[in-house]
Write a protein that binds this DNA or RNA. Structure first.
Lengths: 94, 94
DNA sequence: CGTCGCACTTTCCGGTCTGGCAAGTGATGC
DNA sequence: GCATCACTTGCCAGACCGGAAAGTGCGACG
């Protein structure tokens, strides 16, 4: 029930991030920032939280100006996300 | 998007409470407490939050030992809940 | 070459949310 | 009387949240 909701994923911004990550194979930092409408620092922290949980993998290409940080969902991440979705559905549909 | 998620409803316990309230016409305090697996004080506060938002109505029958407090979802509450569900669905299904 | 701008990250910090514990109220039942 | 049910309220500590600002790395532009 309630306890099946993953607090790491339940936070709105991280939920939206996971939703995108679950459908796209790869997403960049700027894209996510625009998509979620959050600040650099905010997104950086949200993604760090997802990383710490090992729900996403980071790939850094280059440094400095042209740099691109891309995220990918991990197996664990996908499993956690699916579980979360199911928990949500269970609550919502009684 | 994210901004369509109602923070009053998004909190897991309150989400579960609203889900029950949305299907049952009337729910008692003890039932909700058991159903959500929370303490008296916790539930009391969660419901007070929903009341303040005018998402639920309270009806108190009697006082003291045999007392029963029952909750009912309001029109506003139902509207907010539906909106929240749609927002969730929009996020989850991209 | 210097400086501007992009792409992040990290630190600091105030504010909100959360939830337990404990005490208080009202009234019944043993 | 005393335990019990049904709540409510106050106190409070810990978690989380997100903005602001400063820092790093490096390519682009004049």
């Amino acid at each position: 029930m309630i306890e099946d909701l993953d607090p790491v994923i339940h936070a709105p911004k991280r939920l939206a991030a996971m939703a995108v990550l679950s459908t796209a194979t790869t997403v960049t930092f700027p894209f996510l920032r625009e998509h979620l409408g959050v600040s650099d620092s905010d997104l950086s922290k949200q993604m760090a939280t997802l990383e710490r949980a090992e729900y996403v993998e980071v790939r850094k290409a280059g440094r400095g100006r042209g740099a691109t940080t891309t995220y990918r969902i991990t197996r664990t991440g996908r499993a956690a996300y699916d579980r979360h979705r199911r928990a949500l559905a269970a609550i919502l549909d009684g």
